[in-house]
């Protein structure tokens, strides 16, 4: 994963960068599987490696393939380095990985593990937590996705949507003929 990140930083061809970031997501998904977080791995593989790669490629087709090479920005580099060092320093105080006595394992997790089979009746505790115990949070997440869709429609879609609709309704020849007309605007 570190090699992938270094390659992403070094490369200036954005298509290669997008490909590598998809590869990075796939590696992250593998890591999640190793950590027994299958649901998260599933999401990472589908969203990170699949859909976002396609969407980024779509964006590249709209913009350009090559990064503009600028001088190395000093101040942001120092800022990021300092923040990173502070975060790494902060992890020293965190409980050891997999420590059963850490606070996160003593709050609500025991109840989920012990009682969710009787209370919810599902063998997959992740689904029980996501959909039932944390139903509000998931509703919020869906609303975020909803907002993203509405935002994309408002920013990119609406005018093209309307101009294309009669064309798609009629015939294929009109549908393809519509695309160059749309580009002119």
């Amino acid at each position: 994963m570190a090699i992938t990140v270094l390659a992403i930083i070094r490369l200036h061809n954005l298509v290669a960068v997008v490909m590598l970031s998809g590869f990075y997501s796939l590696l992250a998904a593998t890591l999640f599987v190793v950590l027994d977080a299958v649901d998260v791995a599933f999401t990472e593989a589908a969203v990170g490696a699949g859909i976002s790669t396609i969407l980024l490629l779509g964006t590249l087709a709209l913009t350009t393939q090559h990064e503009k090479i600028r001088a190395l920005p000093r101040f942001p580099l120092v800022l990021v380095a300092v923040t990173g060092i502070a975060l790494i320093y902060g992890t020293a105080d965190m409980p050891a990985f997999g420590d059963p006595d850490s606070p996160i394992h003593e709050h609500v997790a025991p109840r989920y593990i012990h009682d969710s089979a009787e209370e919810i009746g599902l063998p997959n505790i992740v689904t029980s937590v996501l959909a039932s115990y944390r139903g509000y949070d998931t509703l919020g997440e869906v609303t975020v996705i909803f907002t993203a869709g509405i935002g994309i429609l408002t920013l990119l879609g609406i005018r093209r949507w309307r101009s294309r609709k009669p064309a798609t309704g009629q015939s294929q020849g009109n549908g393809t003929g519509d695309a160059p007309g749309g580009d002119a605007t």
Partner: peptide, 10 residues
């Protein structure tokens, strides 16, 4: 929708 919005501009 996101895919349509991006792809239809190409």
């Amino acid at each position: 929708t996101i895919y349509f919005a991006f792809a239809s501009r190409q």
